[in-house]
Each structure stands twice: as C-alpha cells, then as structure tokens.
C-alpha cells in the first residue's frame, strides 16, 4: 500500500517535470515566430538600439503597407498559390494511381520499378538541375505555369506513401468488386478513391508545403517576376535590404502565413491521416 503511494507520488513528480519540459520546448518553438512578429513592428532605431527588448516601445506598422508597393508581393502570392494547388491536384491523382498499382495490381517488374522509383528520392536536386532546365526549355515551358507544375506531377515520396496506404486497406473491398466483374479502373475510381480522403489530406498538405516552400526549383524554371513564386521573393530579401530588418522580417512572416493557415485548417485530419497512410 505504502509503496504504491510512493509510486503515485513519484509518477506525479515525473509528470510535472515532463510537462514543464514540454512547455519549455513549446515556448522555444514558438518564440522565433513571436520575435519575428514583434521585430517586424519595431522602428529601426529600436531594432538596432535595444535588441534585448522583446516588445517594441512604439509600434510601427509601416513595413506592412510598404511591402506591397515595394515588392510585387501579391503577384508572388498568386503564383505560389496557382503553382502549389495545381501540383497538389495533379500529383494526388497520379501518385494514388501509381501507389494503387504498386500495392494491389500484379505486373511484371513491379518490385524492380518500385525500388527504382524509391531510388530517385536519393538524387540530390543539384544533379538533375541543369538537364532539367534544358528539357523544360526544349519543351518551351520556361516561364510558364505548366513548366513549373508538370515536372512535379508525380514524385517518389507520394507514390510510396499512397502504396503504403493502399496496403493497409482490406482486400475484400476490391475482391467483391472483381467478383462483380468491374474493371480495375472502375474499382479504383469507385471503390478505392473514395477511401483515400485521409491520405489525400495528409499527402496534399505535404505536397502543398513542399512546393510552396521550395526555393531552388522555381528559381530555376522562372526568369520573370510574372511567374516567380513567393520563396524567390524571400531570396531577394536575403541581406539585400540593408539595415531595414523589420522589413525583411515582415516579408518572412507574410510568406509563411498561407502554409501556417493551411496546416492549422487541415490539422484536424492530419495525425489520423498519417496513421492511416501506414507509414509505420
């Protein structure tokens, strides 16, 4: 009896310590965002003069209006949105088809092909960068949305994830379809696709984030500002605005708003989605 009491107490103490550590970690995680936000509204004198203060003495929101006129931020936003959303739409479809085939259909060379696809994950982008540019150029798609979107229409990670997801689904679903004499396409569209929603949410968020946040790739395939996505604008910021640090931080903060919003919106499905994709 007594030892159990002791144990209960020590468990409680342990719980407190863990809770404290979790809070410290959470504060540390969120701190850079708070610092970015507070510094972005600091007047320049305070940024340079009193960096030890977290909150500004006087608030200066001028950078938030200035940024829209000085950098074509709106255009960049639109470009990023069109690029990322389109990739999500197409890639979910193509990846899920391939993933389904690798999980459920029998064909010659299936495993070999799958391993080959996985291998492409290991290729650093810098290896394929210049030839990729040449191909897109030959296709006449430099500085177009198509040129940005199509090369991203399928990717190894997505195929892998969808395959793992389909592996977790019970087989009798499709078997009953097959017995009914439905074609494989019909089975895929009518039976399998409707079940993909959680996986689609998860993979969709991944793909959206990956493309929205990518820097080198869109920089490579776009020459003009008309098609350049937001991260390229961030690259412009890097150290180029001299001492106007609050301006730079405003840009960084604004550029991360859409992905943060997308995540907060979709996060309800998120963990369960990952659980169902079967990466475990």
């Amino acid at each position: 009896m007594e030892s159990a009491m002791n144990r209960r107490q020590s468990v409680d103490l342990g719980r407190w310590i863990i809770g404290l550590l979790l809070i410290v970690l959470a504060v540390a995680t969120i701190f850079p965002f708070i610092w970015m936000a507070s510094t972005s509204v600091k007047p320049m004198g305070e940024v340079l003069g009193s960096p030890e203060r977290l909150l500004p003495v006087t608030y200066d929101f001028s950078t938030y209006t200035k940024i829209w006129s000085e950098v074509p931020f709106g255009r960049y936003f639109l470009n990023s949105l069109v690029f990322s959303c389109s990739v999500v739409a197409i890639a979910l479809f193509l990846n899920s088809m391939a993933g389904y085939a690798f999980a459920r259909l029998q064909f010659k060379g299936r495993n070999l092909l799958f391993i080959l696809i996985l291998c492409t994950m290991m290729i650093p982008f810098q290896v394929t960068m210049t030839p990729l540019f040449l191909i897109i150029y030959k296709l006449g798609m430099i500085d177009t949305y198509q040129g940005l979107i199509i090369p991203r229409a399928a990717d190894a990670f997505g195929i892998f994830m969808m395959r793992q997801f389909f592996l977790t689904l019970p087989k009798d679903l499709e078997e009953s379809g097959r017995i009914d004499g439905a074609s494989e396409f019909r089975i895929y569209f009518r039976i399998m696709l409707p079940l993909c929603k959680p996986a689609f949410v998860t993979l969709g968020v991944f793909i959206f984030m990956g493309n929205w946040n990518d820097l080198l790739y869109p920089l490579l395939l776009t020459n003009s500002e008309q098609f350049r996505p937001i991260q390229a604008a961030i690259a412009l910021f890097a150290g180029k605005y001299g001492t106007d640090y609050s301006f730079v931080l405003t840009g960084l903060l604004l550029a991360s708003v859409p992905t943060l919003a997308a995540y907060l919106f979709a996060q309800r499905f998120f963990v369960s989605g990952i659980a169902m994709t079967g990466i475990k």
């Binding site: 069109v82 690029f83 959303c85 389109s86 999500v88 739409a89 197409i90 979910l92 500085d143 177009t144 949305y145 198509q146 979107i149 409707p194 929603k197 008309q226 098609f227």
Partner: peptide
C-alpha cells in the same frame, strides 16, 4: 459522394485557371 465530387471539381478548376493564366501570360 457529392461532397467529394465538388472537392475534385474545385481542384480541377484551380488547375484550369492555372493553365489559362499560363497561356495568357505566354
């Protein structure tokens, strides 16, 4: 079913918009 359909339609619409914009610019 309808809900899912509308979701796909929305996706496709974005896509169309995208390529339309692209062509336009071009």
């Amino acid at each position: 079913k309808w809900k899912r359909g509308s979701w796909l339609v929305a996706m496709c619409a974005t896509l169309l918009l995208a390529s339309a914009c692209g062509n336009n610019g071009n």
